[in-house]
């Protein structure tokens, strides 16, 4: 890959990334949003993060590529997160399950 092609691709992706992050903040932040829109936006965070978990677990593959040991770790971590509201405990619980299952299976 030539330097020009690589550099231009990186700069264009960087620009698109910035626009996707800044666009609606710059457009919407100075306006009063209707309640209906606010109600929709309220669940964006949990929904995107949840979809991100599945995508990471699949590692770019499909459902058959998901490691069930990792799924068990995430499920236990989810329960610990729900009960404790502690990210440190969540991470420790999830990783402990993965390490334990890997050692046993």
């Amino acid at each position: 890959m030539t330097t020009t092609a690589a550099l231009s691709a990186v700069l264009v992706i960087g620009f698109i990334t910035y626009v996707s992050r800044a666009g609606l903040i710059l457009v919407l932040s100075q306006r009063e949003l209707p309640d209906a829109v606010t109600a929709v936006l309220r669940n964006v965070g949990p929904a995107v993060l949840s979809a991100l978990v599945v995508t990471i677990l699949a590692g770019g593959g499909d459902l058959g590529d998901v490691d069930l040991t990792n799924v068990a770790g995430v499920v236990v971590a989810g329960v610990v997160a729900w009960k404790t509201r502690s990210l440190v405990l969540t991470l420790l619980a999830g990783m402990t399950v993965i390490w334990t299952l890997t050692a046993l299976l």
């Binding site: 995430v74 971590a77 969540t90």
Partner: peptide, 10 residues
């Protein structure tokens, strides 16, 4: 994945 799962639950 564990971290994002925790943050989604929070």
């Amino acid at each position: 994945a564990i971290m994002f799962a925790g943050l989604a639950i929070f």
